[in-house]
Amino acid sequence: MIDFGFWLPVALGGLLSGGSSGLLGVYVVGMRIPFLAVCVAHAALAGAIFGALAGLAAEHLTLPALTAAILTALALGRVADRSPAGDANVALGVLFSLSMGLAFLGLGLFPVLGRSDHDVRALLWGSLALCRWRDVGYMAVVAVALGLFVLLFGKELRALLFSREYAAAAGVRVGLVWALFLVLAAIALTVNFQTVGGLMIYSLVTNPAVAAALLVRGHARVIFVSVGLGAGVSLGGFLVAALTDLPTGATIVLLSSAWVGAAALWQRRRVRCRAS
């Protein structure tokens, strides 16, 4: 007998997390900054660790995590186009190593200060099975905010996808839209990361968007397919895991990876068919 009271928020959490990550992924993959998810997730972790060290209770660690994630995202926006290589990935590499260093320093301070690091270690991996209605509420707010952002700034985001400098030259308010995107991405990644964990959020941001870009063409179509795949693999992975007793996170990650493989094969076949 399935306990719906327990599993319904888990399923809905997976659906919302997958859908919003799929939407975010269209831009993260399109701008070739998939490392953003890892970088921001680890900055959020560092924030949560120092929040815990400062004595905050587990239920209040979201605030320092969000603060650290947003600051990191804004720092990326500030330095991305000014880094020596003029490449956001270089800035991400620097910020990632900094946030990792801070996170491990913080973790090392727990035994020194004689404190338990149980709350923050749970954050490191996350667990979809522990998703409760309050988490679902946060995820829903983030998903709606992301959707509204794309609806309002869709044409500017499309220009940013192509090239930030070209978009700026065409008179698009790149600074404003890029900063808003990074802040929203930081919030979305932090909220989802706390429930589903760093590895799963990385795969949910990257894989559905890559598969969508291989399957269809055009901004709007890629968004629909990526959101659908993100939500689908989350829910599908959860159901497979529930039926087979396999770990939920790993099942979802593998399912999303399988979609990328299938999409790549399909695209290859399409190219061959066109050529012949």
Partner: peptide, 15 residues
């Protein structure tokens, strides 16, 4: 992996 079509890229000019 850039999903934009030719028409969408040209439309950036009036964005």
């Amino acid at each position: 992996l850039l999903p934009l079509t030719l028409r969408e890229v040209v439309a950036i000019g009036c964005t």
